[in-house]
């Protein structure tokens, strides 16, 4: 039904459009600024003459990246960690969620295990005891410490709730036909849970791609750093305290002053995977999030 808009309603309309446009600009501005810097000549950048459009367009910074062996190494480590880490998470979260989606009558011991999961979700040993375990298992400086030393209980619960909301009849019918739980999981639950699994995949993709602190702690050589950790070390200023913590090799790397447009180019390349993936996953995470959050 159509109704003539009053003056006040028109004002709301214009106001909403302007505010939203402004907010979108605010969110995009730093990214565009960085892109513009990375595509401009260094001397112009140092003189702060670049805003949202490249000045003296050049691809020099990107060509410089091609020569940076460590950047590629770190990029490769990040890609590997995303692939291994996401596969691991999806498998473990699914394996954990499926039995837990049953009632304690269908799966004896479910409630005890739920308490264990909740407990582990709330408490941990903290940084140092955890480091000792990882170290004792010889996982320091390997990719496994970044990917396969845990799984998200929160994601498992998200998926569990999704499983529970699927029609009960599906499982019952399959059971009557003699399907085993593994069969039911793989042939019925997993295909029906694609939106939720896609959401979890996206969360983990972003999480793995973006985390930097674990790389800093569990990798003792710069050459093993994932991309974000590598970028972090480029950024961090030299302080007395991390001078003591870093190896001479790393200090040398830090003190070599990297040009603004060079580091902007690196940061932009590090953003590309995210820029490529999240718009396409949008319909999944908007849905998956809501399923997990609103309905328990």
């Amino acid at each position: 039904m159509k109704k003539r808009m009053t003056l006040g309603d028109r004002a709301v309309d214009i106001f909403a459009n302007i505010i939203c446009g402004f907010l979108a600009f605010l969110c995009l501005m730093p990214v565009i600024h960085t892109l513009a810097i990375s595509l401009s000549r260094s001397s112009v950048v140092e003189a702060n003459m670049v805003y949202f459009w490249p000045v003296d367009f050049t691809l020099a910074s990107y060509k410089e990246i091609l020569k940076d062996a460590q950047f590629f190494r770190s990029f490769g480590i990040s890609v590997a960690r995303v692939v291994v880490g996401c596969t691991w998470q999806i498998c473990l979260v699914t394996l954990c969620a499926f039995p837990m989606a049953h009632t304690s009558k269908q799966f004896r011991g479910r409630n005890v295990i739920m308490v264990i999961l909740m407990f582990c979700n709330l408490f941990g040993g903290g940084l140092i005891p955890y480091y000792m375990v990882v170290n004792a298992l010889g996982l320091v400086n390997t990719i496994w410490v970044l990917t396969c030393t845990g799984f998200s209980i929160g994601n498992a619960i998200l998926l569990m709730n999704f499983f529970r909301n699927l029609p009960k009849e599906l499982e019952e019918a399959a059971e009557v036909d003699g399907a085993s739980p593994y069969r039911i999981l793989i042939s019925i639950f997993v295909p029906l849970s694609m939106p939720c699994l896609a959401t979890i995949l996206l969360f983990n993709f972003v999480g793995h791609w973006n985390s930097y602190f674990d790389g800093l702690i569990y990798m003792s050589h710069t050459k093993n750093y994932p991309l974000q950790t590598y970028i972090y070390t480029l950024n961090s200023q030299l302080t007395a305290e991390n001078m003591a913590w870093l190896t001479p090799d790393e200090i040398a790397r830090l003190s070599e002053i990297s040009g603004k447009s060079f580091s902007a180019a690196k940061v932009f390349v590090a953003m590309i995977p995210i820029l490529c993936i999240y718009p396409f996953m949008q319909k999944y995470f908007t849905k998956g999030l809501v399923v997990g959050a609103v309905k328990g």
Binding site: L95, C96, F98, P99, G125, Y130, G150, F151, A156, P181
Partner: peptide
């Protein structure tokens, strides 16, 4: 069914035991 449910939980719970519960003793 019970056996299969538990076998599914074997790896997740094992991981929690090693990387979550063991460090707690470190406290």
């Amino acid at each position: 069914n019970q056996m299969q449910y538990y076998s599914m939980l074997l790896i997740p719970l094992g991981i929690l035991l090693v990387f979550d519960i063991t460090p707690m003793f470190g406290l």
